[in-house]
Amino acid sequence: MIQFEHVGKRYGTSEVVSDLSLSIKAGEFCVLIGPSGSGKTTTLRMINRLIEHDSGRILFDGAEIRSFAPEALRRRMGYAIQSIGLFPHWTVEENIAAVPKLLGWSKAKIRDRVTELLGLVGLDATTYRGRYPQHLSGGQQQRVGVARALAAEPQVLLMDEPFGALDPVTRDALQAEMLRVHAASGTTIVLVTHDMDEAIRLGSRIVILDQGRIAQAGSPREILTRPASDFVADFIGRDEMGLRLLSIETVGERMRPGEEAAGEPIAASATLRHALSLLVSRAADRLPVTGADGAPAGVIHLADLTVGRP
């Protein structure tokens, strides 16, 4: 869907992005992560030509992005940012309708789409469509921001630290919404963050950038189990490594089916990290597991968390 071929960008003498090659496939949830100054935001903003690349080629849907008019290109890509940037003088409905209106959709179609999107991001349409942004909480504003970005059914959704300014509880809820939205829409998403937990939770692929170059790209599991360099290992956080490994696997993958145990059960879809937390807080060495239907499915033992680790 998006292809970087030896892309470079410099400001004066400093090279912000150098010789970057990366292929983002349709339907992928690609997370760009790195320390400040690593070029992750520049990389994202080069995709919709908010920043023009100096060298190399960037392809969108097979064509060099310079072959599109910038506005036309941007209208095919959703865009959500940390500061949200809702238009304060427009209602929630008008904000979400911004791109469909630019594309000349009919009023009825826009109205239906707004209703659908508010539902998708978890806001009650009749309550919120007529409100002005400043009467919404930060989390609600970003939900509207995401809805606006998705409004015209973009082929790609670009997100620049969209949850960075939100409190942990709201951020957690919005991350869950994003996973749901991604699964429901199948949109290709490119998201920039500096939060490793967010990257692991959301990304189907994580691209770690360091000084304008790709330090490592791969699935969360690959990156956690086989960090390519000391930089990557440090960046993931050596102290947190074990907990992060636990967070990419579910209880269902490691439980012992058919066994039974007493106590409050945990869902098979929960992460192993969650299971460890419960085991420690209950001072137990095993937990009963329930399946998606709520029926007992097996038992997870404390020892199961470490079996077969490299």
Partner: peptide, 26 residues
């Protein structure tokens, strides 16, 4: 606000559209 400008550009508003529909009304 800077964020409003960036969003207007990022979602694909033209320079004229940004001036008439975002900057001047605000």
């Amino acid at each position: 606000p800077v964020g409003v400008r960036e969003a207007a550009r990022g979602i694909g508003m033209s320079a004229r559209g940004r001036l008439l529909h975002v900057e001047l009304p605000l």
